[in-house]
Amino acid sequence: MTDPQEVYARWLDALTGIAFVFSVLALALYLTGALTPFVAPQAVVELWRLPVDQYLARAGAPSGWGWLSLVGRGDYLNLAGICLFALISLICCARVIPAFLRRGEPLHAALAAAQVLVLLAAALNLFPGAR
């Protein structure tokens, strides 16, 4: 019976590799101008001194998951790569729930499930106060 720790390590390794390669390719497409960005790079440089609220208003940039429709643009393709990194822990925690249950460790399965719920709530933008 496979130890959940081994399962977690295997998935973490594979997903981190995928996210890293995706991010390198996306950054190359962005920096070379192969994919037109939604916010022009020079505009980003001029606006990044502002607090995030003012930046979004001036740049006309979306918040929350509003950027998904812009994933074909160079800057938001990079954001997709960043989101891949942020999804890794969620996927790994979800993956070890059945592994813990198979080993007769319901308490650890419950901890992993609770962790998935917290990460999922954060990923789905469910917390009041987040824009």
């Binding site: 950054l27 962005y30 790079p41 980003v44 990044w48 995030v52 930046y55 979004l56 940039a61 979306p62 918040s63 929350g64 998951w65 800057d75 938001y76 990079n78 954001l79 960043i82 989101c83 942020a86 890794i88 822990s89 969620l90 917290v118 990460l119 954060a122 990923a123 933008n125 917390f127 987040a130 824009r131």
Partner: peptide, 18 residues
């Protein structure tokens, strides 16, 4: 990861920096 999602959804993650 948990805190990063809050910053991501708030628009406080600039790909050119990150």
């Amino acid at each position: 990861t948990s805190a990063a999602w809050i910053y991501l959804h708030s628009g406080a993650v600039l790909p050119m920096l990150v």
